[in-house]
Amino acid sequence: MFRSSLAAVLVSGASFAVLPAPSAFAAGPSGLIAHRAVYDLELKDASDRSGISGMYGRMVYEFDGSDCTGFTTNFRFVTQIDTGDSTRLSDQQTTTFEDLTKRIFRFETKSFTDEQLDKDVRGAAEDDQKGVKVELTQPATKEVDLAESRFPTEHMLDIIQNAKIGKNFFEARVFDGSDDGDKSLVATTVVGKQETPAADDADADKAGAFAKTPFWPVTVAYFNEKSSGDAMPVYRMSFKLYENGITRDLTMDYGDFVLTGKLSKLEVLDTKACK
């Protein structure tokens, strides 16, 4: 799974592959499969205070690796934003590595506006038995001690496991290295009953071999660590989730504006089985 804080037009994506039957895909003990997914983004709604009159873009999400070697995620999120008076190109590029066994997480995020670098955040986090210790190397050297948190792939596996046992609501603290890389967020997750794609399901046909595979509708709301009462989430994301970790039909709610992301291309990547 992914979370963004928020150039060809807008990112060159992977070519569509003819996929074999779902049972033919290699997956490790976690059940997750390596894949590259491309999503077309459109503006669904925007408040007056957002200053946004139009927005579109593309998101490319590549998840690779294995349970034994660790998982690498390459994520690129590019949007062209129209304010009525001007347009600007926003480009966020994130690379992470997560070792599920050692509970190590490394991250790097670069954010550009009109091809000019705005922010570069790099660091690593690990479980030190008392919580999560973060060591930032960019934009400045800094150490941060956080409460016990889940890393992104762990949290994805938590969602899938809870979905399987029918637990439709749970909360977790999550650290994904986003924003300034120095805090975790509280993630509230709601999982619906498993469904089979309907005939008019917008992007199901783009899922190739998974076009008719059952999925769970999921909504995750992220809150600041110290939020209380009826606090508004920093960010909310809804999506359709397959048991193998592939997602589609995204809705990304940033408060002042909402984007939709429809799966346009999917490629399953080759991975070596763990020995």
Rank of each mutant, 00 (worst) to 15 (best):
V186C: 00
K206N: 13
M156H: 11
F77G: 04
D64S: 12
H155D: 00
Q138K: 13
P29V: 13
A26R: 14
E115T: 12
D203I: 06
N244M: 09
V38R: 07
R150G: 02
I160G: 03
Q194M: 15
D64M: 07
Y222N: 10
L19T: 11
S228P: 00
R76M: 00
S111M: 01
Q161S: 07
V78S: 04
T72N: 00
V191W: 03
Q138D: 04
H155P: 00
D145A: 13
D205T: 14
M252L: 08
R36C: 01
K167S: 05
S149G: 07
R88E: 05
V258A: 06
F239M: 12
G28N: 15
D64A: 11
F169Y: 04
T271N: 06
G84T: 12
K212H: 06
T188K: 11
D200R: 10
R88H: 09
K119T: 07
Q161M: 02
K130M: 00
L259C: 06
D230C: 05
I33R: 09
A124S: 15
T73L: 07
A34T: 12
G255N: 04
F105H: 03
A21H: 08
D182Y: 04
V218Q: 07
K206A: 14
Q80N: 10
F77H: 15
S47V: 08
K102A: 06
R248G: 03
D85H: 10
D40S: 14
D203G: 05
A198S: 13
G261M: 03
V9M: 02
K102S: 05
A125I: 12
A37R: 10
I104M: 02
T96I: 09
F71Y: 15
T247S: 13
T96L: 02
A24E: 15
F2I: 12
A24R: 14
S227N: 04
G28S: 13
L185K: 13
D120Q: 13
G84Y: 03
L269I: 11
A8H: 10
D179V: 14
G177A: 00
D205V: 07
D91Q: 11
L136R: 14
D203P: 03
R236Y: 02
I159R: 07
